[in-house]
């Protein structure tokens, strides 16, 4: 399994996947620094951290998931390497599990990088804007908790996007579902049933009612693991003719 994981990670070298993975933290850093320097940002470290996490949960997380899972799948779909990869003496479930773990690992790295970018952008913005101040202190634990739980709550969306990206040769299907899901999440943010909508689960981590956040984490996390497991099983058994 270690060899398969290393092999899957090796495929990312020089690929567009890494470029897409770098985009969210770079954008958050650049825009964050400019906004803080201009004096238009929240003048409180706590609000700044929560606002950054909200932008991540609403837009950047689902968009990153769409891009990363589609591009990781296209590493096989593009050059049509499925028949080659699956003809190697490795159990199919290991191939798909390794792909899932690499996708999740990359999303975890991007999450952490965005959290770091949000913090460092403010530090740089404060240096650039001479009259800007930020009240309170940066709470690293708060950021860790928010981004960590958002990752867990986002597992279901990751699993859905990953499954579609692996299954369909064209990336039209996963991209359409991803864009649709993100749009519906924005439109249905405060809807009662929105609690059960996968694309809203990471956002609900920020809910003022603690129970709503806990439910989102539980449903997103457990649902994500179940969907990943079923998808790996299904993809391993289907004909890749």
């Amino acid at each position: 399994m270690i060899n398969v994981l290393i092999a899957e990670a090796t495929k990312l070298r020089r690929s567009l996947v890494l470029l897409v993975a770098a985009t969210p933290p770079v954008m958050v850093f650049a825009l964050g620094a400019l906004v803080v320097a201009s004096g238009n940002a929240p003048e409180d470290w706590r609000v700044h951290t929560v606002a950054g996490a909200a932008i991540w949960a609403f837009f950047l997380l689902p968009m990153s998931v769409i891009g990363l899972t589609a591009l990781i799948a296209q590493l096989e779909h593009g050059p049509n390497t499925w028949s080659h990869t699956l003809a190697l003496p490795v159990p199919r479930w290991q191939v798909f599990l390794a792909k899932a773990l690499v996708s999740l690992g990359l999303m975890a790295v991007v999450s952490a990088a965005v959290a770091l970018a949000s913090w460092t952008s403010a530090l740089v913005g404060l240096q650039l804007g001479s009259e800007v101040e930020m009240a309170g202190q940066y709470d690293a634990m708060l950021a860790l908790r928010l981004y960590g739980w958002m990752f867990v709550a986002g597992l279901l969306v990751m699993a859905i996007q990953w499954t579609l990206a692996m299954r369909f040769r064209s990336f039209a299907a996963p991209v359409s579902v991803g864009i649709g899901g993100t749009f519906v999440a924005v439109a249905a943010t405060s809807a009662e049933k929105g609690l059960y909508f996968p694309w809203l689960m990471p956002v609900n981590v920020l809910a003022s009612e603690g129970s709503r956040g806990d439910l989102a984490i539980a449903m997103g996390g457990i649902g994500g693991v179940i969907v990943f497991a079923l998808a790996i099983l299904w993809l391993s058994r289907r004909d890749w003719g």
Binding site: T10, R13, P79, N80, T81, S83, A87, P89
Partner: peptide, 28 residues
């Protein structure tokens, strides 16, 4: 068995050595 597919099925973004290393690793 060694299987060579109809189309080139190795990884274009990897070097020749990396592709072979990748295959050697998967064959343990």
């Amino acid at each position: 068995v060694g299987y060579m597919t109809q189309r080139f099925s190795l990884y274009g973004d990897l070097t020749v050595r990396e592709n072979l290393t990748f295959m050697a690793r998967l064959h343990a």
